[in-house]
Design a protein around this nucleic acid. Structure first.
Lengths: 180, 180
DNA sequence: TCGCGCATGTAATCAGTTACATGATTAC
DNA sequence: GTAATCATGTAACTGATTACATGCGCGA
């Protein structure tokens, strides 16, 4: 039950249409809560019928017309409620770790190339995060809201750093015992 | 499409009944691929009809009777195929990071207590992983299979270490700006 | 014999993914 | 005018979660 709250957050930061939201999810909020445009349109419809958001008035007839939404007071209240509510962490799910565990049983043939590919993807993501940090959070004092956003970005940077290190270490293991 | 492969891995390590699998998921494989007993029973049924596993012969009539499964050659082959196949990393989903991002907009009231609770949970999990490392992987040379399993455990330890550090840092931010 | 825990399941629901459909606008 | 792209959506499916159902064995 987090997608509606991700959308509310994005809309509070800036009222947007469905496609604009989709693009912004690809760039920022989606780094830790991804969503496709289908999910977003469906959820925008729900949030509107629930009275948490509304379409900005600008006479939109039907398909093919942009439709921007803004958050209503009830939506802001719901987001504040959800943010403050206690939530248990979701149980982990990581297919790559599972595959290594399986490889311990059925052999490591073929897995090394994919580890390299993953390492490459994580290095790219890390570089992207660090670029965002340079652009958005230059050295000096962040504003209170920016301190929280910076903290979230640091989590992303540190996680990607972990993965690149761990994958490098894993590949070294393979180098030592060729063929598994 | 990873649950069946998690089950195949667990069954190859040791043939088990549904409930035994559920317990083992709680302790080991479930650390990075959790599953409830309902999921496991359903999946055992599918795997059996697909001919990847079979019930160990021991005349089990119906409900209330233990039923153990073992992996058939086709199951081992499918697991090896899946392990070697290239897979894209799943997009991230982390509700806690999303909540902090929301808190930057609607305020941080009430979130601090839950951050402390999460920190506590991660500290406990970290201690559990380190205990497993002491018991299962004492200093010295791991066997080839154990080196992979140890690597997976190290990922768990490093991830929990990251979260405890990050949450500690986040709580320090709150201490500096009380009330958000 | 009655309740409790063990063990195996069924059913309903919900969130996320994939594939497809349709109108409007712009570039050639 | 027609192809590409923008923008909004529908439908079907898959996987995960939650709630409930059933039978067995054991101890008080």
């Amino acid at each position: 039950m987090s997608l509606p709250h991700a959308i509310l957050t994005a809309l509070l930061e800036k009222p947007s249409s469905g496609l604009e939201l989709t693009r912004r999810f690809d760039r920022s909020i989606g780094y830790f809560w991804s969503a496709t445009h289908q999910q977003i349109y469906r959820e925008l419809g729900r949030l509107e019928t629930e009275g948490l958001i509304r379409a900005l008035p600008a006479e939109q007839p039907a398909r093919g017309q942009k439709k921007s939404y803004e958050v209503l007071p009830a939506g802001r209240a719901e987001l504040a409620r959800w943010t403050a509510a206690s939530q248990d962490p979701k149980p982990q799910r990581d297919a790559l770790l599972l595959r290594l565990r399986a490889a311990a049983v059925v052999g490591t043939a073929g897995i090394e190339a994919d580890l390299r590919r993953h390492l490459d993807l994580h290095l790219k993501q890390l570089a992207e995060y660090e670029e965002i940090e340079r652009r958005h959070f230059p050295p000096g004092r962040d504003s209170p809201e920016d301190r929280l956003r910076h903290l979230v970005l640091r989590a992303g940077i540190d996680l990607e750093t972990f993965w690149t290190r761990w994958l490098t270490q894993a590949l070294e293991e393979f180098a030592e015992v060729p063929g598994g």
